[in-house]
């Protein structure tokens, strides 16, 4: 089955097995391995990407469902060597340790801040509920997102 879509601003068109998950398409076909897979029940959120501007768990949808859409992955966040303000905030606040959940956290944070540019701590915590981190206890991730909301202003 043919899938035509835009990923990080670049057009792609590939023939895929219909059952291919978007996460596997990004990782295996496009070599965008920043999108991680941490579970098989759509709970952990490591695979979160933006699809037409909305945070989506890319292990939950088939690549063919993304046909015609615009995808942004973690690789598409920085502008050349300059980190996106959310990435910058994660770095400044030690919002990551092993780095595995980080791409999903950053993409989810982008969605949270798009919908709510001035979130409270509780709103950030609620927004991150679908993303697991085993390293940070979420403390510095929540701080990072709050800090990012300041940086984006």
């Amino acid at each position: 089955m043919r899938v035509t879509l835009t990923v990080n601003g670049k057009p792609y068109s590939d023939d895929l097995e219909p059952r291919t998950l978007l996460a596997h398409y990004l990782r295996d076909t496009l070599n965008l391995t920043g999108t991680h897979v941490g579970c098989d029940t759509s709970n952990c959120g490591a695979c979160t990407i933006l699809m037409d501007g909305k945070a989506v768990k890319s292990c939950t949808i088939l690549a063919v469902q993304a046909d015609g859409s615009e995808i942004t992955t973690i690789e598409g966040m920085a502008n050349g060597g300059e980190l996106h303000p959310i990435q910058q905030a994660f770095k400044e606040n030690h919002g990551l340790q092993c780095g595995f959940c980080t791409p999903g956290m950053v993409m989810t944070a982008a969605d949270i801040l798009q919908n709510n540019p001035n979130p409270t701590e509780q709103e950030v915590r609620h927004g991150l509920e679908g993303n697991f981190c085993r390293c940070t206890g979420y403390h510095n991730i929540v701080k990072s997102v709050l800090h990012a909301s300041e940086l984006i202003k």
């Binding site: 990782r27 070599n31 965008l32 391995t33 920043g34 999108t35 991680h36 897979v37 992955t73 973690i74 690789e75 966040m77 920085a78 980190l83 990435q87 994660f90 770095k91 400044e92 030690h94 990551l96 780095g99 595995f100 980080t102 791409p103 950053v106």
Partner: peptide, 23 residues
């Protein structure tokens, strides 16, 4: 000192090298 981590940029930009990323 709370020196910012030197490893962070690769993780934050999706350039980490985890085993499953290797082909």
């Amino acid at each position: 000192k709370p020196i910012k981590r030197r490893e962070d940029n690769r993780f934050l930009t999706g350039k980490g090298r985890y085993t499953d990323d290797i082909k």
